[in-house]
Simulated assay, not measured.
Amino acid sequence: MNKSHQLERDSLGRLVFIDAKGERHLGVYPVRAFPITAPRTGVGIMNQSGKEVCWYPDVALIPQAELTLIEEELAAREFMPVIERITKVSTFATPSIWDIETDRGPTRIRLKGEEHIRRIAGNTLLIADANGLQFLIKDSTQLDKVSKKLLDRFR
C-alpha cells in the first residue's frame, strides 16, 4: 500500500492519519464498505466530518501495523451479535419476544414487526430488535430445525 501516509494512535488513544503532505487528521475512524457481505474488501479511513481521507480496496493490502490499529478500532465500533439458534418465541404475531443464542451468549430480544427482519444477501438476514440493536444470521439455511421453523413463521 501507499507508504506516503501513516496511521497511528495519539497519547489519548485516538487514531491519527498523517497524509502524504504531512497533514495530521485527528480522530479518524475506519469504515467497512460492505461489513456483512464482504468484510475483507474496502475499508475507508474517515475524518471527523465523515470525509474519506484514505481508501484501502483490499484488507490484504494494508500493512500489518496499520491493520492492527484498524481492526482494534473496528472491533470497538462494530457490535453485531450472530444468532446461532432461536430457542423460543412468545407468539407468532408481532411484537414478540425471542429467546436466542448468539456467538456472545444467550439473550432475549423483542421483535416489533416482521419488517425488522431483512434479507441482506442470499440467506443472510439482519434482525433489528426493539432497541435498535442489529443481530445477524449469516446463513438461515444452516440453522437447526427448530430455529428454521420459528423463523419461517415470521418471513
Rank of each mutant, 00 (worst) to 15 (best):
D19W: 05
A20S: 13
K21E: 15
K21L: 12
G22Y: 07
G22D: 08
G22C: 04
E23S: 14
E23W: 11
E23Q: 15
R24A: 13
R24T: 05
H25F: 15
H25E: 09
L26E: 14
G27M: 09
G27I: 09
V28P: 02
V28Y: 07
Y29V: 00
Y29G: 07
V31H: 15
V31P: 10
V31E: 15
R32L: 14
A33Y: 10
F34G: 00
I36M: 08
T37M: 06
T37F: 03
P39E: 01
P39V: 03
R40D: 15
T41I: 15
T41Y: 13
T41H: 14
V43Q: 02
V43G: 02
G44A: 15
G44N: 14
I45T: 01
I45F: 01
M46F: 12
M46D: 00
M46N: 06
Q48L: 07
Q48P: 00
Q48I: 04
S49F: 08
E52L: 13
V53W: 11
V53H: 12
C54G: 01
P57D: 11
D58V: 01
I62D: 06
I62F: 03
P63V: 04
P63R: 10
P63H: 12
P63S: 07
Q64Y: 11
A65F: 04
A65R: 09
E66W: 12
L67N: 13
L67H: 09
L67D: 10
T68R: 14
T68F: 09
L69P: 09
L69N: 11
E71G: 07
E71A: 11
E73W: 09
L74R: 13
L74K: 12
L74C: 06
A75W: 02
A75I: 01
A76Q: 14
R77T: 10
R77C: 08
R77N: 14
R77A: 15
E78P: 05
E78S: 07
F79P: 00
F79C: 05
F79W: 05
F79H: 13
M80A: 09
M80W: 11
M80H: 10
P81I: 02
P81G: 11
V82K: 12
V82E: 10
V82R: 13
V82L: 09
V82N: 06
V82P: 00
E84C: 04
E84W: 03
E84R: 14
R85Y: 01
R85S: 04
R85T: 01
I86F: 01
I86E: 02
I86R: 06
T87V: 07
T87W: 00
T87I: 06
T87A: 07
K88A: 09
V89I: 07
S90K: 12
T91W: 06
T94R: 08
T94C: 14
P95W: 03
P95K: 04
I97K: 15
W98M: 05
W98V: 06
I100V: 13
I100Q: 01
E101T: 08
T102Q: 02
D103G: 09
D103C: 06
R104F: 02
R104Y: 06
G105D: 03
G105N: 02
G105K: 03
P106I: 00
P106Y: 01
P106L: 00
T107R: 10
T107E: 06
T107L: 05
R108I: 13
I109K: 07
R110N: 08
L111V: 01
G113F: 00
E115T: 12
H116N: 13
H116W: 08
H116L: 05
H116K: 11
I117W: 04
I117A: 04
I117P: 04
I117N: 05
R118S: 04
R118K: 11
R119Y: 07
